[in-house]
Amino acid sequence: MDNLTLIAICSIITAGLTIGIGVVGPSLAEGAAIANALKALAQQPDASSTITRTLFVGLAMIESTAIYCFVVSMIVLFSNPFWNYFVEKAGS
């Protein structure tokens, strides 16, 4: 197995682990946030607009972590900085 194949395999595995592990935390956090918001809405229905607005802002912040993991995995797959280095070394 040459270096280019090894770099490609490592990039694919790293991208998969980044998405797989990086989405677990935000998923659990979103579930907990929604559960707590529903509890708060059940206790204080008069404050529903404030709770809902705060919930959506919080969910957007939590979801941005998963989006960052997706961006990192796409960079590793399609714009890998090591790939060009090894292509140049293999050509010379």
Rank of each mutant, 00 (worst) to 15 (best):
L59M: 08
I19S: 08
S27P: 01
L55H: 04
A47Y: 08
L59V: 03
A42W: 06
L38F: 15
G20R: 01
G20P: 02
E30I: 11
T50C: 10
A42E: 09
A33E: 06
T14F: 08
V23K: 10
A35M: 11
S27L: 10
V24A: 13
V57F: 14
A29S: 08
Q44C: 11
L38M: 15
K39M: 13
A47D: 12
Q43P: 09
L59A: 05
L55R: 06
L28P: 00
L38G: 10
L55G: 03
I34W: 08
A33P: 02
G58W: 01
V57E: 02
P45D: 01
G22C: 04
G25R: 12
L55W: 05
A32D: 08
G25K: 11
K39C: 08
G31R: 04
G31Y: 00
I34M: 11
S48V: 11
I21M: 12
F56E: 05
D46C: 03
I51D: 01
T50N: 15
A35D: 11
E30R: 09
A29D: 00
S27Y: 08
G31S: 03
V57T: 12
Q44T: 14
L38C: 15
S48P: 02
N36Q: 15
I19K: 10
T50H: 14
G20L: 05
A47M: 14
F56G: 04
A15D: 01
A37Q: 02
G22K: 02
A37R: 03
G25A: 14
T18F: 09
S27F: 06
A40M: 12
G16H: 00
L41P: 05
G25I: 13
G16P: 05
R53I: 12
A47L: 14
A37Y: 06
A40W: 02
A29G: 00
A47C: 09
S27M: 10
V23Y: 09
T54S: 14
G25N: 05
V23M: 11
N36V: 09
S48M: 14
L38K: 15
G20S: 02
G20E: 02
V24K: 11
V57S: 08
I19H: 03
P26A: 05
A15L: 06
G31V: 00
F56C: 06
L55D: 02
N36E: 15
A32W: 10
S27I: 09
S49P: 08
I34Q: 04
G58C: 07
R53H: 14
L41C: 07
I21T: 07
G25Q: 10
V57C: 07
T52L: 12
T52A: 12
A47V: 05
L41V: 05
L38T: 13
A32C: 01
G16C: 06
I51A: 01
Q43G: 08
S48C: 12
V57H: 07
Q44S: 15
G31I: 04
A35Y: 11
A32Y: 11
